[in-house]
Write a protein that binds this DNA or RNA. Structure first.
Lengths: 341, 341
DNA sequence: TACGTTGATCGAAACGTTTCGATAATTGTA
DNA sequence: TACAATTATCGAAACGTTTCGATCAACGTA
C-alpha cells in the first residue's frame, strides 16, 4: 500500500498536520522540521492522494471542458486544438481537464454533464456554440466559466475571442494589394459571433477601400461551415455571377470546398481565382495549392481560457470581460496577382 | 450548499448508510424505503460527491490516457480519434478520462504523469509508441493498463490492435485487380508493430500472387510517417526506378506526400500512378484526387480499450491478451486500372 | 414453544487529507 | 521583570461517502 501522510509524520517525528503544512508550503514552519519532513517524504516516496485532498479542501482540482457534439464531428481539428491547449496549460497549474460533449439541443434535466452533477469541477470552459439552456444552468449553479470562441450577447460574461474583424480585414488588404476588387464572400452559421465578425471585416474593408458592396458576390449557406457547403456555396456563386477574381471564405473548410468546386469547373487556382481561408487548420497544407489563410493560435486560445478560469476560481471574481487574441495572415499558394497586374 | 447524503437520510427518515445502500443498488433494501429514499433524493436534487465517493470506495473513477508528445503534433488526427473513442465509451461506464502526454524520452523520475503520482486513476490506456521505461513503471505500480496500436514484444500484456496485415493484403488485392504488378511501398518508423505488419502484408500479398519482391520498389524512411517524408520517399523512389504503376503507403500522411510529389513531377493520379493510403484520416477526402485507403475505426479502437480496461479493473485479471479489430478498404479516386487494362 | 435463519436497518469506523483553535515555547516591550 | 505578542507545533474536527459488524424483527422449522 502506498504511504500516507501519517507514515510520513511518524517517520519525521511530527504531527501529521505539520506534514500538511509543509506540503502546502504554509507559513510558520521552521526550516529544520521542513527539511526533516521533506526527507521523510522523499524516502517513503509519498504523494498526497488526490481524492482525499479534494474532499478536505473542497476544491476538486478539475476543470470541465464542454463542447457540442457536432463541433467534434464537423469542425473537429479546430476545437480539438483548443482542447489540447487547455490540457497543456492546465497541467502547469496542477489541474486536470475533464472533457465532455453535449447535444446542441441541450436540456438540463437529461444532458447535464456528469462532472457538474457530481460537483467534480471547480470551473468550466465552453468552446464554440453554447446552448442558452446550458449558459443558464451554469449561472444558476454559480460555477466559474469562460467561453472560447462564442458569447451570448447582452450578458456579462468571460470570453476569449480571436480578432476576427482584423483578420478578415488583413485578408482583404492582401487581396487588394494583389489587384483584386471583385471579391466574393462565402460563409454559413452567420449567427455565430466569430463568423459575423469575419463578414463584418469583409464589409468594412470594402468600405475602407471605397469598393461597392454587392449582394451578387455574397453566398451565405443556412447550414454548416463544412467542405461540402463551401462547394455548394461556390456553385451557387458561379451561377449568380462569374465576375469575381477572389473569394474570402468564412473558414478553411469552406475554402477547401470552394477550391474543389472551382477546379471541377475548370478554373486554375490561383491564376483564375484567388482563395483565402480562415483558421489555419492543418489540412490547409494538404490541398493543392496550399491555402492562404488567417492563422489563429488555437492552443493559445485554450491556454488563455485556462488562465482566465483559474484567476476567477482563485479571486472569486465573476466577470473579467472579453480578451481578444491577435491573428495573422499566412500567405501560401492559393492567392496571386490578378491577370491585369 | 449542495445537499449531502445526511440531508437525504433525514428527509427520508432513515440512517444515512441506508441511503448509501439505495444509491449503490445493493440487496436487502425493502421496496418501500427504496422508494422513500428515491423521493427524498429527487426532492433535494441530491448527487453523491465524486471525491468523497472516491476516498471511501478506494476507486477513483478515472482512467488515464497517455500519449507521447510527438504523436500529438505529428499524427494528431489518428490518436485524437482514438482518444475521443475512449472518452465517449468511458462515459457509458461512468468513468472520467484524464489525458496526458509524455516525452518520448520518458524518465520515471521526472516525467511520471501526475495522475499516477497522485493515485488518481484506476487504470491506464496507452496509445501508440510507449517508452520502455513507462511500461516498466506501470508494471511495477501494478496498475491495470492496455496498449492501443502498440505492443512490447515478448511480454504478456493487453493490447488492442487493428488487422494491419489483412488491411495491406486487401489494398494489394485491389491493386492486382486493377492490373497493377509493379507496386511500390513507402514507409517509415518500421519498428512500430503496426507499420511492420503493413509491410509484411505487402510482401505476403506479392508472394501469394507470385510476383517477385524487389528492393527497387521499397523506400523506407528512417524518420517519421509524415506528409513530408512521404514526399521525400517518393522522390527517392523516382530516382531509383520509374517503373512502378502504383504505390502502397504506410499511412495516409505519407500517401498524401507521395501524391504531392508525383503531381509536382508531372504525373497524373490515378491515370499514371495509383496510390493507396492507410488509416482513413479525414484529410484523405481533401486531397485531389481523394485517397483510396484502408479504413480503421479509430473511435472503436478506443472504445474497445476502455471496455478491456474496465474488465481488468473489475476482475483483477492481469492479462487478457490481444484483440484485433477488422479493417476495410475504402475505394476513392486515387486508384484506377493500369493503362493496359 | 423455543430456536436458528433470513431480511432490513442501523451505527460506527474508515478513507486521507485540510483547517482551525489550543498550547507551548520564544521573543519583544514597557 | 512581568506580560503581551509572535512563532512553531499539535490535536481534533471536518469533508461526504462506503463498508462491515451489530441489532432487531419476522419467519419457518422441529
Amino acid at each position: 500500500m502506498a504511504a500516507t501522510i501519517k507514515d510520513v509524520a511518524r517517520k519525521a517525528g511530527v504531527a501529521f498536520s505539520t506534514v500538511s503544512l509543509v506540503l502546502n508550503d504554509r507559513a510558520n514552519v521552521s526550516p529544520e522540521t521542513k527539511e526533516r519532513v521533506r526527507r521523510a517524504i522523499e524516502e517513503l516516496n509519498y504523494r498526497p492522494k488526490h481524492s482525499a485532498r479534494s474532499l478536505a479542501s473542497k476544491q476538486t482540482g478539475n476543470i470541465g471542458f464542454i463542447l457540442t457534439d457536432d463541433h467534434f464531428s464537423r469542425a473537429e481539428p479546430f476545437y480539438t486544438k483548443i482542447f489540447l491547449g487547455t490540457e497543456f496549460e492546465s497541467r502547469l497549474y496542477n489541474y486536470y481537464i475533464l472533457l465532455t460533449t453535449i447535444p446542441p439541443s441541450f436540456k438540463a434535466a437529461t444532458d447535464t454533464p456528469r462532472f457538474l452533477r457530481e460537483h467534480n469541477v471547480d470551473g468550466v470552459i465552453l468552446a464554440g456554440h453554447v446552448p442558452t439552456a446550458l449558459s443558464k444552468l451554469l449561472d444558476e449553479l454559480d460555477i466559474p466559466h469562460v467561453y472560447v470562441d462564442y458569447s451570448h450577447q447582452k450578458k456579462q460574461s468571460n470570453v476569449v475571442m480571436m480578432d476576427n474583424l482584423n483578420g478578415a480585414k488583413a485578408a482583404m488588404k492582401h487581396l487588394f494589394q494583389l489587384g483584386h476588387e471583385k471579391i466574393a464572400f462565402i460563409g454559413a452559421e452567420i449567427t455565430h459571433p466569430s463568423i459575423s465578425s469575419r463578414f463584418e471585416g469583409y464589409k468594412v474593408a470594402l468600405a475602407d477601400a471605397s469598393i461597392a458592396y454587392s449582394e451578387q458576390l455574397i453566398q451565405i449557406q443556412k447550414t454548416f461551415l463544412s467542405v461540402e457547403e463551401g462547394f455548394n456555396a461556390t456553385e451557387i456563386l458561379l451561377r449568380k455571377n462569374r465576375n469575381f477574381t477572389a473569394i474570402l471564405a468564412a473558414n478553411d473548410a469552406m475554402a477547401t470546398g470552394a477550391l474543389q468546386c472551382l477546379k471541377k469547373n475548370g478554373y486554375k487556382i490561383p491564376q483564375d481565382v484567388s482563395i483565402v481561408g480562415f483558421d489555419n487548420i492543418d489540412a490547409g497544407t494538404l490541398t493543392m495549392p496550399q491555402l492562404t489563410t488567417v492563422n489563429i493560435d488555437k492552443e493559445e486560445l485554450g491556454a488563455i481560457a485556462v488562465r482566465r478560469l483559474i484567476e476567477m476560481i482563485n479571486s472569486k471574481k465573476q466577470f473579467l470581460g472579453t480578451i481578444y487574441t491577435p491573428v495573422d495572415l499566412i500567405i501560401r499558394e492559393s492567392t496571386s496577382p490578378t491577370a491585369s497586374n
